[in-house]
Structures are given as structure tokens and as C-alpha cells.
């Protein structure tokens, strides 16, 4: 079956090269270095205690939940700037629904979910059918949803802050699906994150749909020419991102018992940062869910590590920016070897 012809030029790369070219590797090395660094300077101050570890896993979980779906969308070549506002808005739906409209929790969650599906579908349609760049559509969404969050809460409850969710839902067992502790101070959200990462990674690398995601982002025309329903793939992913926003909102609102108009602010960038740190390309076609999980962990470790090390928070954003730049440079090097076209 294998005819050795002289012009066959594919060759197996040495194991080392193949490992280095995996997008997650740079991020994984980075997170280990950071962890060791903070363990040394903050270890005696609680960074290594179970509570300390839980504190950055909780942060990683929250950003990782939206980061996972945002990564799929980025691989498919699209962007969602409105995910942070979606977290705020759907959180407000849940809080208003339970406290003001007297809805049972399941109904409030269903309302938020239904809205997210509709919103994701609408964004997807605008992007794929009307050819408006997703950057613009979701930038509009960012302001629209944030403004609506303030507007609705103010007109219904006279203030853009809704408390008392825990009283309103009482002992509804459904809340323990989203709120509460798994073990010591580790949130239930951590399990959601891990679950999402596993499902996301399997879908991306082990299914037909995952193959399509790569193809749609790598070259929409090639994908279309191969008979892949490009529009459907993108719309599904926009919906998935919005729905993950509802999940994060549910976790936040039910564990904190309140919603305010600031919730989720900046998550759109944090999600993108985790993806890029993990080796996902903003131009689509490449990326990794595991990489994003490592990126989310990086964010959590830096954020809490600075605190344990007693460094002023003022530097957090600067360090994040630096890490992002570093990750992009490393990925650029890795990618140069793969693609010559």
C-alpha cells in the first residue's frame, strides 16, 4: 500500500519539536514557573494551604467557564465582546426573576437561558447572514446588555443592585447545583469548569463538529467548499458562549445571593486573554481548550499570588498584559514552524 515515491516530503518531526509545537506547552511551562515563584515568595503566607489553592482555583473556574466557550468561538474565527455584559444581564434576570417576579428558581434560570439562546442566535445571524463583523455586533452587545442591566434593574427595583436572592429562593435544592462548596472553600463552580473543559476538549478534538470548528476558522471558504454548514457552526458557538455566560451568572448570583450592574465587567477580555495565553489564535483556525484552562489557571494564580506575596494590586493588570504579550510571542514562534502558507 505504501509506495515509496521520491517526492513524498512529509517526515516525522523529532518528539521534542512536536511537543514544543503544541500550543499549550508554552502556557503550561509559564504557569508552572509562576506557581513556583509565588509558592516561594508567598508560600509561607498561605499560598500553599488548601484555602489558598482553592482561592485561585475558584478564580480560574469562573474565568475558565466562559474562556472555554470563547475559545471554541475564537477557533471558529469569531469574537464575543459581550460575554461580560451577558454575565451581568443574565445575572440580573435571575435576581429580578426570583426576588421581584416571584419566579421559582428553575423558571428564572430558564428565562435567562432562553434569553441567552435568543441573543446568541441573533448575534450569529447578524454575523453570518448579514456579514457584519462579530467584533462590531458584540461590541454593540456589550453596551446594549450593560445598559439594559442598569435600566431594567433601576426601573423595576429602583436600584441597579438586587439583593435577597437567597431569601427569595429559600431552600430550593436547585441552587446547590451552582452554589456552595465542594470541599473546604472550593466552589461548586470548579466542577462545572472541569466538566466544561473535558466536554469542550472532546468536542473540539474528537468529534466531527470539532473538526468543523477548526475548518470554519481556518478558512471559511475551504470549509464551505467541503460542504460544511459554516453558518450553523458559528451560530451554535455564539449560543454556546452566551449560555456559558448564564452558567457563570447563575454561579455568581446563587453563591453571592445578589446581582449588581457591574457583574461580569471585563470578563470578555479576561476570557480572550486566557485563550490567547493558552495558544489560541485570534485569527482563528488554531487553539486548544486545555491551553485555555491553563490560561485561566494562570490568571487565578497571578491574581491571588500577588495578594499572598503582598504585592500591590496596582501591578496586576500590568503583569497580565506582560504575560499576554509573552504568550503571543511564544505562540508566534511555534506557529512559524507549522505554517508556511
Amino acid at each position: 500500500m505504501t509506495m515509496a515515491l521520491p517526492h513524498s516530503r512529509t517526515r516525522e518531526l523529532p518528539l521534542g519539536r512536536r511537543i514544543v509545537e503544541r500550543p499549550e506547552v508554552g502556557a503550561a511551562i509559564g504557569v508552572i514557573v509562576l506557581w513556583v515563584f509565588f509558592a516561594i515568595i508567598g508560600g509561607s503566607d498561605g499560598f500553599l494551604t488548601t484555602r489558598g489553592i482553592a482561592s485561585y482555583l475558584n478564580i480560574a473556574a469562573q474565568v475558565g467557564i466562559v474562556g472555554t466557550t470563547v475559545t471554541l468561538l475564537l477557533i471558529a474565527g469569531e469574537f464575543d465582546l459581550s460575554i461580560g455584559s451577558m454575565v451581568g444581564f443574565s445575572g440580573m434576570i435571575i435576581a429580578l426573576g426570583t426576588t421581584q417576579a416571584g419566579m421559582p428558581l428553575w423558571l428564572a434560570l430558564l428565562c435567562a437561558l432562553a434569553f441567552a439562546v435568543l441573543y446568541g442566535y441573533a448575534v450569529g445571524m447578524l454575523v453570518v447572514r448579514w456579514n457584519i463583523p462579530s467584533f462590531i455586533v458584540t461590541l454593540a452587545g456589550l453596551f446594549l446588555l450593560r445598559g439594559a442591566t442598569i435600566g431594567f434593574s433601576r426601573s423595576i427595583a429602583q436600584q441597579p443592585y438586587i439583593g435577597g436572592v437567597k431569601n427569595a429562593i429559600g431552600t430550593d435544592p436547585l441552587q446547590y447545583l451552582f452554589a456552595g462548596k465542594l470541599w473546604e472553600s472550593l466552589d461548586v463552580g470548579f466542577l462545572w469548569w472541569i466538566g466544561l473543559v473535558i466536554v469542550g476538549a472532546i468536542v473540539l478534538t474528537k468529534t466531527k463538529f470539532g473538526n468543523w470548528i477548526f475548518a470554519v476558522g481556518g478558512s471559511p471558504s475551504a470549509a464551505r467548499a467541503s460542504g460544511i454548514p459554516v453558518a450553523r457552526v458559528k451560530i451554535i458557538l455564539f449560543i454556546a458562549v452566551s449560555v456559558s455566560g448564564v452558567l457563570l451568572a447563575a454561579i455568581q448570583v446563587l453563591s453571592l445571593g445578589s446581582a449588581d450592574s457591574f457583574r461580569g465587567q471585563g470578563k470578555e477580555f479576561e476570557a480572550a486573554i486566557t485563550a490567547v495565553i493558552g495558544g489560541t489564535s485570534l485569527s482563528g483556525g488554531t487553539g486548544s481548550i486545555i491551553g485555555t484552562a491553563i490560561g485561566a489557571l494562570t490568571l487565578g494564580i497571578v491574581r491571588q499570588g500577588l495578594f499572598f506575596a503582598g504585592v500591590d494590586y496596582d501591578w496586576y493588570q500590568a503583569i497580565l498584559g506582560l504575560l499576554l504579550l509573552l504568550a503571543v510571542i511564544i505562540n508566534q514562534f511555534a506557529r512559524r514552524n507549522v505554517s508556511k502558507s
Binding site: G46, R51, Y56, I59, S185, Q252, L256, Q304, F307
Partner: peptide
């Protein structure tokens, strides 16, 4: 949200 996370870390 972040304030809450900081309190948790502070306890540690």
C-alpha cells in the same frame, strides 16, 4: 465578586 475572592484568600 473579586472582593469576596480576596477575603477568601485573606483567610488563608
Amino acid at each position: 465578586v473579586q472582593e469576596g475572592q480576596l477575603i477568601e484568600a485573606a483567610i488563608a
